[in-house]
């Protein structure tokens, strides 16, 4: 049976709305993926724990508030602590270009800023899954 891609879509930090994350969730769903949506104001600990319990292939996070340099690397750090090395972690939101290299070095495989076509995100996920279908 063909493997269904499971994605956790999460909003770490204190953002007030999640319209963008919902658009992404919907686009991934329409691309045939199963999207576990966790809602607003999640701590990195909650995100990692949910990712493990749901056995997802991808963790997709979005931040608008500017806390990405702290929260995104914290998630990859916690995953590493738990010995999880086969989940693809991607980020998105309002993120200055200057911050992207640092995030990539911290294990965020790709960063999608406002205006990124959802098709690019879907393609990136399909091409970069760490667990092979």
């Amino acid at each position: 049976m063909e493997r269904t891609i499971r994605v956790l879509v999460a909003k770490p930090g204190l953002d007030g709305h999640d319209r963008g994350a919902k658009v992404i969730a919907r686009a991934l769903r329409d691309a045939g993926m199963e999207v576990i949506y966790t809602g607003l104001r999640q701590t990195p600990e909650q995100i990692v724990s949910a990712a493990v319990q749901e056995d997802v292939d991808v963790v997709a996070m979005s931040i608008l508030s500017g806390a990405h340099n702290h929260l995104f690397p914290r998630v990859t750090e916690l995953l590493k602590e738990k010995g999880v090395d086969d989940m693809l972690v991607i980020g998105g939101g309002v993120i200055p270009d200057d911050d992207i290299p640092g995030l990539k070095a911290a294990g965020i495989a790709a960063v999608f800023t406002p205006g990124s076509p959802t098709g690019d995100i879907i393609e990136f996920i399909k091409k970069n899954l760490k667990r092979k279908a």
Binding site: T4, A25, R26, L28, R29, D30, A31, G32, M33, E34, V35, I36, Y37, T38, G39, Q42, T43, E45, Q46, S49, A50, Q53, E54
Partner: peptide
């Protein structure tokens, strides 16, 4: 149609995640 799904029940239960 697509086989995709939005699994949103967890939103209400995330306080138990940790």
């Amino acid at each position: 149609f697509t086989g995709g799904a939005i699994l949103g029940d967890r939103i209400r239960m995330q306080r138990h995640a940790t």
